[in-house]
Amino acid sequence: MPLEVTGLKEMATKIKKIEAVMKSAKISEKALRAGAEILRDEVKRRAPRSKGGSKHAADHVIISAVVEGKIAVGFIPDNWYMKYHEWGTSKMTPQPFLEPAFNAKRKEIQQAMYNVYVRELAKI
């Protein structure tokens, strides 16, 4: 009894489309940005605030452009001193907020990035 297989061309076409989605720089950037926005919001929430009511570094958390498949969430250059809050100095104990923000939202960030790919794959 001979075996007949149909639909291989359609399946190969669909696999090529899936591969194109997974390798797409535009979609990768969209996924990175979705995750970065969640992290930015959490960093803003956790960032130390001055008691004097002046400008807060939390109001200046930015998301960089995607460069070589990487994106950064941090502060504008004027807030360079925030690293001292995170790591401390010889005279100041650390008050970390960046790493705890990432650790608290890691799964949510991954899920948001995953959802971007799922939405794009559903369009095929």
Score class of each variant (00 low, 15 high):
M82Y: 12
Q110M: 14
R106L: 13
K30E: 13
L32Y: 03
A104Q: 13
H56L: 06
K30A: 10
L39Y: 12
S50M: 13
E37V: 08
I27M: 02
P100Y: 03
V118Q: 06
Y114F: 09
K83N: 14
P96E: 11
I18L: 06
K44P: 10
G7C: 02
M11A: 13
K9Q: 15
H60R: 05
S90G: 07
I109S: 09
W80T: 08
V43A: 01
Y81V: 04
W80N: 11
K51P: 01
A12F: 00
S90H: 10
A58D: 06
K16L: 08
K26M: 07
Q95S: 07
Q95Y: 05
D59R: 04
F97L: 03
V66N: 04
A104Y: 03
I18W: 13
K91H: 15
G88N: 01
K107A: 08
A25G: 12
M92S: 05
T93R: 15
L121Y: 09
N115P: 00
G74L: 09
K55G: 11
I71E: 00
E4W: 00
E29S: 14
G88F: 00
A34Q: 04
A25Q: 13
T93V: 15
V43L: 00
L121R: 08
S90K: 10
R46T: 03
N115K: 09
G74Q: 13
I124P: 09
K123Q: 12
V73E: 00
Y84R: 03
P2E: 14
V43D: 04
D41S: 12
A112Y: 08
K9I: 11
E4H: 02
L3D: 11
K14D: 04
E99I: 08
K26H: 12
A104D: 05
K44F: 03
G88S: 03
M82G: 07
G52H: 12
M92L: 07
A12T: 01
K83E: 14
M1D: 08
I63F: 02
I62P: 00
S64Q: 14
K55C: 06
P100R: 02
K23V: 07
N115Q: 14
E37D: 14
T89C: 11
